[in-house]
């Protein structure tokens, strides 16, 4: 069975750190940064690169549309 590896790119400055993406991520790959952005928010980050499958759930639910999602097939 083909395996997929995903990745997300978060627009750190536009992220408001609501944490909804992290709360719904089915593989618990997303967390919130320790550092803050220009507005003082702890932005979303990929905390586990190995487990992200690029399902795009985070992208679809992000209220601010700051998440771009990629997915590649791995052998």
């Amino acid at each position: 069975m083909a395996k997929f590896q995903g990745a997300i790119v978060v627009d750190r400055e536009k992220c408001k750190g609501c944490g909804i993406c992290a709360s719904i991520c089915p593989t618990k790959s997303i967390g919130m940064s320790k550092e803050v952005n220009g507005k003082g928010y702890h932005f979303a980050i990929l905390v586990n690169e190995e487990t992200c499958v690029g399902c795009a759930s985070c992208g679809h639910i992000c209220p601010d549309g700051v998440i771009t999602v990629y997915r590649a097939k791995v052998e």
Binding site: Q5, G6, A7, V9, L46, E49, G54, A56, G59, H60, G65, V66, I67, T68, V69, Y70, R71, A72, V74
Partner: peptide, 18 residues
């Protein structure tokens, strides 16, 4: 695969609409 290898246009699955 590294993040850079994954984050290529051909692997894009979701992006905010224009």
């Amino acid at each position: 695969m590294t993040l850079n290898e994954i984050c290529k246009p051909e692997n894009l699955v979701y992006k905010k609409t224009s």
